[in-house]
């Protein structure tokens, strides 16, 4: 029973990471620059460095890439109290 349950969970995690790895290769070569313009000119060392994180957090990046969204502006008590930054969309 335990072996079956754990086997199923390990398989699920492996599938998640396999999809993530395929996505990550596409993202670091094409998508990163769309989501974050600074990344468009990133070195190959940089792309390799973010690849594991892209594989792990692929649903977040896939959604942002698909919707054409940019990185959000951080939220702090002062930014919330001040309202949108000048020039913000």
């Amino acid at each position: 029973m335990l072996v079956t349950l754990v086997s199923w969970l390990v398989g699920l995690a492996a599938a998640y990471l396999a999809v993530g790895l395929v996505f990550a290769v596409a993202f670091v070569t094409r998508g990163a620059g769309r989501v974050d313009p600074v990344a468009a000119h990133g070195t190959w060392g940089f792309r390799l460095a973010i690849l594991p994180g892209c594989a792990a957090l692929w649903p977040l990046l896939a959604r942002r890439w698909a919707r054409g969204e940019r990185a959000p502006v951080e939220r702090t008590p002062h930014r919330d109290a001040a309202g949108p930054a000048e020039g913000a969309p």
Binding site: F46, I50, G53
Partner: peptide, 15 residues
């Protein structure tokens, strides 16, 4: 470790 690069700081936001 995988999210330690500044790219992640910018794209996840610091908080």
């Amino acid at each position: 470790a995988a999210t330690s690069h500044d790219f992640w700081l910018h794209n996840l936001t610091a908080p």
